[in-house]
Nucleic acid binder design. Structure first.
Lengths: 238, 238
DNA sequence: GCGATGCTTCGGCCGTGGCCGAAGCATCGG
DNA sequence: CCGATGCTTCGGCCACGGCCGAAGCATCGC
């Protein structure tokens, strides 16, 4: 009767993810966008009542959170821990029965850069995080990080506002791990804003029907000049 | 119709984990030991036929592997990716609805040192890995690692045989990530042998009814002198 | 060979949970 | 106010899958 209670909870959570409709819903929310119930119903390929029941169960299990806005209800992933668990399962599903890495073109793009929840992951994100640490712009310890004064200036120049009085309780700088790289990368508000800026500047663009991100020509230059990332890391996957 | 196929697979895998009996079976196997069908049936609290059916499904889904030995059949976790996914879910289950870390005594011990599948995880394992890298005894790149010549000597002195012609196809040195530390630590055959030696030397001992490991007095001295780990990291959790 | 032990397959029972259509609240726009 | 839109609740249908006991293979010890 070890962590019996714990095993119960694990089973409950896994069972929540272990349904086609709910997995599709979570998959859709992994983009980081908050979506309405109807959109999610459509995405999961089920009727509105069915989706509603699924969403209620996911909220009840604290896998997703809901925010009502007028007559819409916006659902989103509840925490980065949820995104994390889903990514792990996703990784397991991808390598599944195979012995060695499949390395399809889609897979290569995913490994280079992709969105994870609402920030970036993959080689690009890991390298950016390393670069920020190496330059003393952020300090990372355990799972959380701090922005240094140098960093504050740097991010301001880059167009990222780090309001000292955040209205959101969400941590500014958090690390999130990476199934393809086995390294940490930035999440939290800072990670989200880095993705935001990168998209705004057209340094990366979402690839169709996937969470993979493509690095544009501008991006190759920008990431190289601004963050000092090596060019070969930024080139399109071979 | 994005990664619809992928979402299907994720749901299938999660559904496998999402059953009390199967979660208990996996939980038991997370110790890294290979167990027989009857033992697992007992552990899951179900009859032999029921357990057999569950085990067959888990094998079919490539979550566990089986090896027959005489009239016994030994089951074990199929890969570190499975152990990884289970740990992620375990982490999610632990923090679940709560806002901040619970930090019970059990939890503190788990964060300091525990077994992950068949090797060590937690602060201790992460620090050991860092120390080995810093001393140039291993080189880690991407997910896999190499033992240097210096390292080979070091491990031989430590009592770990690294036969150049391994009969097992299992990689010697692999990294595995860590939910509590968000850092990589050593898995693979080397990681397993490090745990082995640490247990043999009574530097760590399994705590009752848990995957947590306690660091003994001998261990504090040993890890400090042999790996150069700081003493405060080795002290019992406050 | 023989029984004992370990494990799986078979057959049948039953409950949980998925699904939808219809109806019920809530909110917006006019 | 009214209808339209977004979402949930209700009621009922159905099947997937978990559970066990009994029986069937396989392997060991003698």
């Amino acid at each position: 009767m070890t962590n019996q209670a714990s095993a119960t909870t694990i089973a409950a959570i896994a069972a929540l993810i272990g349904d086609m409709a709910r997995a599709n819903i979570l998959s859709a929310l992994m983009s980081g966008k908050a979506l309405t119930a109807t959109e999610l119903a459509h995405h999961a390929g089920v009727s509105a009542p069915t989706a509603s029941a699924h969403l209620a169960r996911l909220v009840d299990g604290h896998l997703i959170a809901v925010e009502k806005q007028g007559r819409h209800r916006y659902y989103r992933i509840a925490s980065s821990a949820v995104a994390d668990a889903f990514e792990s399962l996703s990784h397991l599903a991808a390598i599944g029965p195979k012995r060695h890495r499949p390395t399809g073109p889609r897979d290569l793009a995913m490994r280079q850069a992709r969105t994870c929840y609402d920030h970036m992951a993959g080689r690009l994100a890991v390298a950016m995080t390393d670069a920020l640490i190496a330059r003393g712009l952020i300090v990372v310890e355990d799972r959380s990080g701090l922005v240094t004064n140098d960093g504050r200036r740097f991010f301001a120049d880059f167009g990222i506002e780090l309001d000292p009085k955040p209205k959101s309780a969400r941590p500014l700088c958090r690390t999130c791990l990476d199934w393809s790289e086995r390294r940490m990368h930035l999440g939290g508000r800072l990670g989200a804003q880095l993705l935001d800026q990168s998209l705004k500047r057209h340094w990366v663009r979402p690839l169709t029907d996937s969470r993979a991100l493509g690095i544009t020509r501008d991006g190759e230059r920008g990431f190289h000049e601004t963050f000092g990332l090596p060019l070969d890391l930024l080139a399109p996957p071979r």
